[in-house]
Nucleic acid binder design. Structure first.
Lengths: 210, 210
DNA sequence: TATCGTATAGTCGGATCCGACTAATGGAGG
DNA sequence: CCTCCATTAGTCGGATCCGACTATACGATA
């Protein structure tokens, strides 16, 4: 699979918006924020203007006009090209089809959970679970309001459903793991200082399985 | 919460390794890969040397010596400072405690699932589910082998358990959503070209709930 | 009517990231 | 004993990203 010319997801958002109508960058940012898509895309004005430039360079979008409203600063308006439209669809297709290995910060931290010691680790996990719980409730309520009211077809909020599902899974794992630490199911190996740093002595593995 | 001086997770990996013993960057990379931590950290030699430099600048690690083995290129060996050790623990603590909003590519793509149309969307989701299924089996087997053999305490593979759990959740959602599309539970609004781009006509919302 | 805050629209320089490259060594195979 | 390839160890320049900043306009308020 050949590497994509423009790989950041903000470019996908730009292409998606220009599918609907032509816009200037500032409007893209505010539209995305209005629609609550800032959970799916990292919207940073600096990056946005760079991304737009890069899309222009690759011929996926073009400048339509530069209008000046009153004495406000000029706005440069863009549209997709035909290439850009095809690229958009095939990119979405590929992103859905083939899972990409992401590197979430949480997983990085979990791989050093041992460094906290059992008590602090369990406590930290519980605190996380609390935050996640709040986020889950917010997400549920947001979905209920927006979709339930019939303002927007459910398909247009489907990524929020995915986000909620992911949150719930993480919440479940977090709580379960903290329980396992507290109940001793997940045991802490003992660390010892050696000449060359730290080593662990694994808790004796019992071989009493049938 | 004040912004961290060094924020990328590769730095966390470096600090973690130097907790055990002093190392030169190349050894860090190969150790991480050997231990299969390349799922949790994005290991790129270029970034690694930059990260190490940055850690030195902030006083979290220091150069111990530069050895030359035979006529091989010089290796520069590093250790953590006391500040670095404290920073490491408090960073892990923070990363566990407070969830950070990540922006996975999949979620970005899902938010434009509509662009594929129902058939192609369902098909793409199924293909993803297939890939995920394979990854899940690999992960399960790897865990069974490594932990089951007692070579390594379970705590040291805990992030793989988390990864597996996340994969399973994503797999479940992917399959469920593809089912919903096929069964019509998740309906596609009809798109219409208007003067200014595309608009959708929402499928009639039935108000026949009790 | 002077001023304060907010919305509009975008620029810029430095930090970070990453892939592609260099260069030497040790060992396997013919 | 010559060649080829994998391993060891790291450099470098360009691409990307991002936060902090500028500058104008509009509306509310004192």
């Amino acid at each position: 699979m050949a590497r994509r010319k423009v790989a950041n997801t903000l470019a996908l958002a730009v292409l998606g918006l220009l599918q609907e109508k032509s816009m200037h960058p500032y409007e893209m940012a505010s539209t995305l924020r209005e629609r609550g898509k800032d959970g799916s895309f990292k919207i940073n004005t600096g990056s946005l203007y760079d991304t737009v430039q890069s899309l222009v360079r690759h011929g996926w979008i073009t400048q339509v006009e530069t209008v000046r409203d009153g004495r406000r600063p000029e706005r440069t308006v863009y549209t997709t090209t035909e290439v850009g439209q095809q690229e958009f669809v095939s990119w979405v297709d590929e992103l859905i089809r083939t899972p990409a290995t992401e590197h979430p910060k949480f997983m990085a931290a979990v791989s050093y959970l041992g460094a906290l010691g059992p008590e602090r680790a369990a406590e930290a996990l519980d605190e996380r679970a609390g935050h996640l719980d709040r986020q889950i409730h917010e997400a549920r309520q947001m979905l209920a309001e927006t979709v339930g009211s019939g303002l927007l077809p459910r398909l247009f909020m489907i990524e929020a459903e995915y986000g909620l599902h992911a949150l719930e899974a993480e919440h479940a794992w977090t709580l379960r793991t903290s329980d396992e630490i507290r109940s001793g199911t997940l045991s802490w190996p003992e660390f010892e200082q050696t000449d060359q740093g730290w080593a662990w002595s694994a808790p004796a593995e019992r071989k009493d399985a049938p």
